[in-house]
């Protein structure tokens, strides 16, 4: 073993040790707790655990988003607005033109079909449906976010999702054509 080889090994190991030790100290001194990202994303989601994203609930959806295994457009009730916020949060550029300019839709109960079986308001995540046993039920449009779970559950197909009619208050200018 020539001397230069020996000294080479010696120098590198000492430098490695020295720098390793220095970084160890710095790591302890600059420690940062759990990644706060997941909680922030969960706070942004609607929190109704409606399952339309295919994941059991909003916390697991947040987890999937944080680990970037799920697209930001996974949450229909959140719509384009939530997708845009999530995209900004995770700093990814996403093409939202695919999501149509969706008009909020509300569940509407057809009185002739409703036999008061109360299955729908048990499953509604926001208590938007009101009605007693064997009485015709009604839907609070204010509280309904159009998640559609009640439509699936209703035995007599009395529930349908109806988009909101255009009104002067909600109307806004279309985007002009640009050359």
């Amino acid at each position: 073993m020539e001397p230069s080889l020996l000294s080479a090994i010696f120098i590198l190991t000492t430098m490695g040790l020295l720098l390793g030790y220095g970084l160890g100290m710095a790591a302890k001194y600059l420690r940062v707790e759990k990644d706060p990202l997941v909680d922030e994303i969960e706070a942004m989601l609607p929190g109704t655990n409606c399952g339309q994203c295919g994941l059991p609930g909003c916390p697991s959806a947040a987890q999937a988003l944080a680990s970037r295994t799920a697209p930001v457009t996974l949450c229909p009730p959140g719509g384009k607005l939530l997708a845009q916020q999530l995209a900004d949060k995770l700093d990814i550029t996403v093409d939202l033109s695919a999501m149509g300019e969706e008009v909020p839709a509300f569940a509407v109960i057809d009185p002739d079909h409703c036999n008061g079986c109360t299955r729908c308001y048990k499953v509604c995540a926001t208590d938007a449906i009101m009605g007693a046993n064997r009485q015709i039920h009604t839907v609070f449009t204010e509280a309904c976010n159009g998640c559609g779970k009640c439509v699936e559950v209703c035995p007599t197909q009395g529930l349908t999702l109806v988009p909101e009619a255009p009104s002067l208050r909600r109307w806004h200018w279309p985007k002009p054509k640009s050359a």
Binding site: P46, G47, T48, N49, P77, P104, A128, A143, N145
Partner: peptide, 14 residues
């Protein structure tokens, strides 16, 4: 308006 409705619905769900 949509944000207000979503907060409202989140509060109701809560």
């Amino acid at each position: 308006e949509q944000q207000r409705r979503q907060e409202e619905i989140k509060r109701l769900a809560q």
